[in-house]
Design a protein around this nucleic acid. Structure first.
Length: 255
DNA sequence: ATGTCGGGCACAGCCCGA
């Protein structure tokens, strides 16, 4: 099985990139984040014509997630069960397909909106931990993948790109990521590349790509049985060199 | 602060978010 995740930074700007990429890679599932459109604006048909079933959790202007699937699936959740927000944002999409629970997530960045904005990020992480705990307690094979907006360690961001106060590296954010690992989930990239410096995002500004001033913020966390079956983890850096690229590149796991 | 994107608003450049 092949599962990919890609923060696309507007599907309307980059649906051709996705089409071409799908033709090349043929994943069983593709998780998309930051589609930045409402459900009815998503180009569902072009992916259906390619043999994918499509489920979209969109909203106006910001955020938004979607899953493209070659296999039948059941929708589980469009909001994390324990997340009680007055104005829920489109940041989560969970399905079950081929016996695996597939959780596509786009964590709040946490750097805007002051302390309240940061707390929203921490609440999302808490709800994610609760969801992971629930699925693992019920022996449900599961994968949590997407844009976590967390650099787990200092190796996961280029020197001098972020301050210690940045929400992507703050201890509270990182602690949430570690809690997911302590529950028994495996950081798929680190299972295969324990020590290499690898990034999944390069800012549009300051020639970040040319200077390799990147971040590792797109992750795939695997429940134990899936982790045992993990065969490969790929960061498709070539996408960052294309015309009008997203600032994130696809990550791909095979199991 | 720098800097570059995308979307919204509303129709021309700003503003927000990343």
């Amino acid at each position: 099985m092949k599962l990919a995740s890609w923060n696309i930074n507007s599907i309307r700007q980059r649906h051709t990139h996705v089409q071409q990429w799908l033709t090349k890679e043929q994943p069983d599932w593709l998780f998309l984040q930051e589609i930045k459109c409402q459900n009815e604006q998503f180009p569902t048909e072009i992916f259906e014509e390619m043999g994918y079933q499509v489920i979209v959790n969109g909203q106006k202007a910001y955020n938004g997630v979607a899953i493209l699937s070659r296999h039948p699936f059941q929708l589980n959740h469009t909001v994390l069960p324990d997340l009680n927000e007055e104005e829920p944002q489109a940041r989560y999409l969970e399905i079950e397909s081929q016996g695996v629970t597939l959780c596509n997530l786009y964590l709040p960045n946490g750097n805007s909106g002051g302390e309240e904005g940061f707390q929203r990020k921490l609440h999302f992480i808490d709800a994610l931990i609760n969801r992971a705990e629930h699925l693992l307690q019920h022996k449900q094979d599961c994968i949590f993948a997407g844009d976590f907006n967390i650099c787990p360690t200092n190796q996961d961001y280029a020197p001098q790109t972020l301050s210690a106060e940045d929400a992507l590296v703050k201890p509270e954010s990182r602690n949430g990521f570690y809690q997911l690992l302590w529950l028994g989930l495996t950081d798929a990239l680190r299972a295969i590349y324990p020590t290499e410096t690898l990034y999944t995002f390069w800012d549009y500004t300051r020639g970040a790509w040319q200077r390799n001033a990147g971040l590792r913020i797109d992750h795939a966390l695997l429940s134990p049985k899936i982790a045992e079956q993990l065969k490969s983890f790929t960061i498709d850096k070539a996408e960052r060199d294309k015309e009008q690229p997203s600032d994130h590149v696809p990550i791909i796991i095979e199991f």
